[in-house]
Every structure is written in structure tokens, then in C-alpha cells.
């Protein structure tokens, strides 16, 4: 968790530096990220409560318990996206320019998530005999946490040194395509996937669908005159 917060802080600093280039003020970037993070935390708890109402009816004080385990990540992300969209609309921020301004934040956050997986031993790999395998959970495994961290570093590097495209949304879509592509590749080495349809990895199928959708969005954004 500390690594993710550290990454969010570094990401925010970099996003602020790049914000002006995308026509977004530092103040707006700060507010978007702050509102998003606060809603992420509160939304995750509320979503967990809504999914387990009978447990909280019997123990209403559990709602304000400090247990971090009472958290639904999907609900948290959904709530944060809704609040950020509402904030953006009320402040009349341009959607694609804002996403471009936030891209350094997202890129650093993915590095932080990879490092936090490494620290906690989660998102672990399947067993391997390769020499770079790491000993984790009583087996020698693919260091998938290192793979994902390296892929995130590479993505960040490519974006940071990428020539500035005047068409809005291209920077964010490049980040999204690289992240979906690397996940599609790396998930094959994970040892904790959800399997569907005779052994297909659900996470790879989601990454594939995301990639196809991103390509469609690329064409839509590239129609804009530079």
C-alpha cells in the first residue's frame, strides 16, 4: 500500500509538470487526482458494504471499522471514475486532453502496483525451471511481478520520450495499448489466473478485448486534425 501511495505521489508530481502542455491547470490535475483517490477509498468500502448488507445490519459499527480488508477494488475504481468524470464535466475540462495530462500519473501508478505485488508476493508466476525463476510460495516461479514492473518502466520511458502529438488522446491511448499488450503477454506466466472456456486465462481475454477497443479509439482520435 505504501509503495502505491509513493507511486501516486511521484505520478502526481510528474502529471503536474506535464499538465500545462495539455492545456490543463495544475490545480485541476491536483483536484482530479485527490478527488479520485478519496472516492477510491470511500467507494471501495461502500461497494463492499452494499455487497454484504446482511453482515452490516447485524454489526452496523463495522461500517467504520479500520480493517483494510473490507474493500472492493472494482467498486472503488468505478466510483473514482464516476466522480472524476462528474468533476471534469462541472469544470468543463476537455476529456482527451485531461486523460493525456493524467497519463504520467497512470504510468507511474502501474510501476508502483508492480512493485507492491513484488513486495507482497501477490500476482505470482507459475512454476518454472528457468534460471531467473524466484523462490516464492514453496516453488520456483516466473518472477511475473518483475516482468510487469519492467514492462511498466519501459512503457513509462517510451511515453516520456515520445514526440509530442498535438492530437489529444494519443498519449493516453498509447499508454493504454502498451499496458494492455504487456498484460496480454505477461499473464501467460501467472500462476493465479481465473480460467475460463477450457483453460483460457480470463485476464488475457480481457486484455485482448481492451486492446481491440483501444485500436478503434486510436482511429477515432487520429481523424482529428493536428
Amino acid at each position: 500500500m505504501l509503495l502505491i501511495f509513493a507511486a501516486a505521489w511521484i505520478g502526481l508530481t510528474l502529471a503536474e509538470k506535464r499538465a500545462e502542455r495539455n492545456g490543463i491547470s495544475k490545480e485541476n490535475i491536483n483536484n482530479i487526482i485527490f478527488n479520485g483517490l478519496i472516492t477510491f477509498v470511500i467507494g471501495g468500502r461502500i461497494s463492499f458494504i452494499l455487497q454484504n448488507i446482511p453482515a452490516f445490519i447485524k454489526n452496523p459499527f463495522g461500517v467504520v471499522s479500520i480493517n483494510p480488508d473490507m474493500f472492493d477494488p472494482l467498486g472503488a475504481v468505478t466510483a473514482a471514475i464516476i466522480v472524476v468524470l462528474v468533476y471534469g464535466q462541472r469544470r468543463r475540462l476537455l476529456f482527451w486532453y485531461t486523460l493525456d495530462a493524467l497519463t504520467p500519473f497512470f504510468a507511474i501508478l502501474t510501476i508502483g502496483i508492480g512493485l507492491s505485488h513484488l513486495a507482497a508476493g501477490t500476482a505470482f508466476g507459475k512454476e518454472t525451471k528457468l534460471v531467473w525463476g524466484i523462490n516464492l510460495w514453496n516453488a520456483t516461479r516466473h518472477p511475473t511481478q518483475i516482468y510487469e514492473t519492467l514492462a511498466s518502466f519501459l512503457t513509462f520511458g517510451l511515453l516520456w520520450f515520445k514526440r509530442h502529438d498535438t492530437r489529444s488522446g494519443i498519449l493516453f491511448l498509447t499508454f493504454a495499448a502498451l499496458t494492455a499488450g504487456s498484460q496480454l503477454f505477461i499473464q501467460a506466466f501467472r500462476g493465479d489466473n481465473t480460467l475460463i472456456l477450457n483453460g483460457l486465462r480470463q485476464e488475457q481475454v480481457i486484455a485482448f478485448a481492451a486492446l481491440a477497443f483501444i485500436f478503434i479509439l486510436f482511429e477515432y482520435r487520429l481523424k482529428e486534425k493536428p
Binding site: G121, L184, T194, G199, L200, R201, A207, F208, F215
Partner: peptide, 30 residues
């Protein structure tokens, strides 16, 4: 890219059809 991705998904599918970590004892979820 999409054809390569689809091929990679098919190639890397788990042939056993079950989560690979369930047989190994370890103090971790799954």
C-alpha cells in the same frame, strides 16, 4: 497484433483446466 495476441492466448492456455496453485501448500489465498 490482434492475430498474434489471439494465438498467444491459445498457446498459453492451461491444459489442465484448473488453477495451477491449488496443489501446493502455501500460506497464500488460492
Amino acid at each position: 497484433i490482434l492475430i498474434s495476441g489471439a494465438s498467444w492466448i491459445a498457446l498459453s492456455a492451461e491444459k489442465t483446466g484448473s488453477a495451477p496453485s491449488r496443489d501446493i501448500p502455501a500460506p497464500q489465498a488460492s
